[in-house]
Design a protein around this nucleic acid. Structure first.
Lengths: 256, 256
DNA sequence: CGTTTACTTGACGTTAATCAAGGGGAGTGG
DNA sequence: CCACTCCCCTTGATTAACGTCAAGTAAACG
């Protein structure tokens, strides 16, 4: 936690532009000067350390946040003091979209490790999107995408068993890292087993047992938080229904 | 299915305006002429009958849809031919927001009963929102709200047991009806037990047993699809953790 | 070096799914 | 209008998956 947190103003600026680009501008038609205008409203990052809270549930909503480096989780209070982990956020991913509606944050966000964040004041972004139609379109897409991701998660929690959930989590994580240019088969989990279980609706013990089982089955190599995917194909097969040597029959479940 | 489906062009038009208002314009600062312009792009409804498909997963995305009367469900294919019911839609509620991102529908929608729908061509809506800042803001809020609802559902599927899920479903349904001016304590469920179970991640049999139990406990009166909430307070208590005469200890679950 | 926290593993219990069977409406055809 | 059928719903018995409880090990931290 030395080099990575000590970053020059200039490098932050460049990185912010990168973040903004990746989340808002990826497949679109902004002119260079549009990007410049967008970049101008992005505030410089404030570095967070493990456990630091970026925003808390109930706080007034002012800005969206983009992860520059590191990772964060968002979570909401459940019944009886419990928490539900809602999502993990990797570099280039945006946070705070759920707060627009009520004007206050619906969940809290905290850093899983040392992280740098870009802040985008929403009021200014909104003004800008009104002026730049393609940026407005990107915002709609961004919000819509978030809905799609939540939908995937609903499907996971509603229909998948423990094994399928963890396999889906690992593959999804792998793919997100790969999208950012990192290794898809060799990575570090910045969250605890507890947080993974919470996110997937499973007990810590179940997550732990599954990691062991996956390793025994030659699907992954697990060493504490270091993960090596040995057989992504095999994980894929687990997700889509029948697990390797076991249940195979088509589930009846559902329909009218 | 006579009077309700035979609707004059004028009444549709008025109803569309109502729909548009309720979903897009509720707490906002549109001038009457803005509303007029918005209303002008809304296409007249096409009536659907039970089982009719409004849009199908994979279809090109062109329009958002607002329920005028009746009710619909959206669902996505799960693994092995199964389906996951993603949401139920009541009058005034909007569908299709998840399709903006990819430009094609991510889920399918079908009518649970005879229903009338308003269609809002998205391209035209987008043009309009670029011209009317307060409308743009409403769109952001609408999308954000959808995310918030999905989040609530994640919490339900991730942390709640069968009893809590059904109680939450009943109360949520009741509140949504109440918002539309209907009775909050006496209503008709347009979906089957199967669809409720699918939506809540439960087996049909479990849903059925819970309805029976809730009735035995004096919480509701159930007669086929007719529901009478006798003790909303009691349902509320079930949702927030401890069920009436049983488990009361604080769940340990979660946290880092 | 001692303490704490995270993770793992085993034994057991509980919840809800699955399997199986029977009742009751709603719609259909006679 | 009645009888039949189909589907939806309900109820009971059994089972499997996963949570819970308990204990022990290994890193991380001060």
């Amino acid at each position: 936690m030395n080099q990575s947190t000590v970053i020059s103003i200039e490098s932050i600026r460049v990185a912010c532009r990168y973040c903004t680009l990746s989340s808002l501008c990826l497949p679109m038609g902004l002119t260079p000067e549009d990007v410049e205008r967008l970049d101008d409203i992005v505030k410089r990052a404030r570095p967070l350390h493990r456990g630091d809270v970026l925003f808390r549930e109930g706080e007034r909503f002012r800005s969206l946040y983009v992860v520059k480096t590191g990772s964060l989780k968002t979570f909401a209070p459940s019944c009886e003091g419990g928490e539900q982990v809602l999502s993990f956020h990797l570099p280039g991913e945006i946070m705070g979209l759920d707060a627009i509606d009520k004007g206050e944050h619906a969940c809290s966000a905290s850093a899983l490790e040392t992280s740098a964040i870009c802040e985008i004041p929403f009021a200014r972004l909104e003004e800008l999107t009104a002026l730049i139609p393609s940026l407005q379109h990107q915002m709609y897409r961004l919000l819509s995408k978030e809905i799609g991701q939540d939908t995937d998660m609903l499907l996971l929690l509603g229909k998948k068993n423990a094994e399928e959930r963890l396999a889906a989590f690992l593959l999804s994580f792998s793919q997100r890292l790969h999208k950012r240019g990192l290794s898809a088969t060799d990575f570090h989990l910045s969250m605890s087993r507890h947080e993974i279980g919470n996110y997937l609706g499973l007990a810590v013990e179940t997550v732990s047992r599954l990691f062991t089982r996956f390793q025994d089955d030659g699907l992954v190599r697990v060493e504490r938080k270091h993960i090596e995917l040995l057989d992504p194909q095999g994980l894929e097969e687990i997700i889509d229904g029948a697990s390797p040597g076991r249940r195979q029959a088509p589930q009846r479940q559902q329909q009218t």
